[in-house]
Simulated scan of single mutants.
Amino acid sequence: MIRIPANRICMSAFPEQLLNGYRSFMSGRYAHETNRYRELARSGQSPETLIVACCDSRAAPETIFDAGPGELFVVRNVANLVPPYSPDGEYHSTSAALEFAVQSLKVKNIVVMGHGRCGGIRAALSPVAEPLSPGDFIGKWMSLVAPAAEDVSKNTMLTAAERQTALERISIRFSIANLRTFPCVSILEKKERLTLHGAWFDISTGELWIMNPETGDFERPEAE
C-alpha cells in the first residue's frame, strides 16, 4: 500500500485558491514590503484606528482604505454591531477587541463602518424568517437592533431597499451610542484623546459615505 505523507494530505485539502493567493502575496506585496513586516514583527503593532466592520466578504476595510500592514486594527462581526457595555462574565469578542484597541494599543480613532446589502440587516428586517440553526445565533445577535428594525419596517412609504439602507445607517449610529457606554471610550472621548466616526460603504458603486458627527447625516467626502 502506498502511503501519502501527512503534510501532503493537509496541503491537498487546503483550498487551492488560498495557496495561489499566498504565493502571489509572497512574490508581490511581501517582497515589496519585507522590511515593513520585519519591523512590525520586532516592534509590534501601533495602529491609530480601530474599525468595527461587517464580516461580509465584499466589504473588507483593509481593501477599501488601501491600508498597509499594521495600519488598521479591525474587528469584524455580523452587521458591524457594537453591543452595550456588559461586564457579566460571559464571552464578548467584540468588546474584548475594543478593550484591547483602546486600552493597550491606545488607538485615536474608532470607525463603525456599515455597508449596503448587508445580510445581517436584512435578517433584522425579516424576523419571521426561519433560523439558520437551532442556536439562532444571528437572530439573537441582530436582536440588538430589533426596536429600530421594527420602527423602520412600519414605514410603508419606503421601498424594501430604502428600508434596508435606512437601518444599515441607523445601526451605525446605534453602535456609536453603545461605544459610549464603555467607560474607557467615554472617558477618553471627553478628554479628546479618542474620536468616534461612522461610515457606510456602497458595494455596488464603491461610494463611501461619512457620518456627520453633528447631525448624524451621511455625506459624501469632498472630491479632491
Rank of each mutant, 00 (worst) to 15 (best):
R193Q: 10
Q164G: 10
H197E: 03
E214D: 11
P213E: 04
T165S: 12
T215E: 03
K154G: 11
V152N: 06
P183N: 01
C184T: 08
G139E: 13
T156C: 08
S175K: 07
S204G: 09
A177T: 07
M211T: 02
S171K: 10
E189R: 03
L125G: 06
T195D: 04
R169G: 03
G198T: 06
A129L: 13
T205R: 10
S153Q: 13
K140Y: 14
D202F: 04
V152H: 10
F174Q: 11
T215G: 02
L179Q: 02
F174S: 04
T215P: 02
C184D: 08
D136Q: 08
G198E: 06
L188S: 01
I210G: 00
P147V: 07
P134Q: 12
L158N: 12
T181N: 05
K140H: 15
D151L: 15
K191C: 01
I138C: 07
R163N: 00
A146V: 07
F201V: 03
R163W: 01
I172M: 07
L208T: 11
F182S: 01
D217T: 11
V145M: 04
T215F: 00
S186Q: 07
H197L: 04
V185S: 04
T195L: 05
A146D: 13
W200D: 00
V145Q: 01
W141M: 14
S143G: 14
L125S: 07
T159R: 12
E207I: 00
G139S: 13
A177W: 05
A177P: 00
R169T: 08
S171N: 11
V185R: 05
S186A: 10
G139D: 11
W200I: 01
S126T: 14
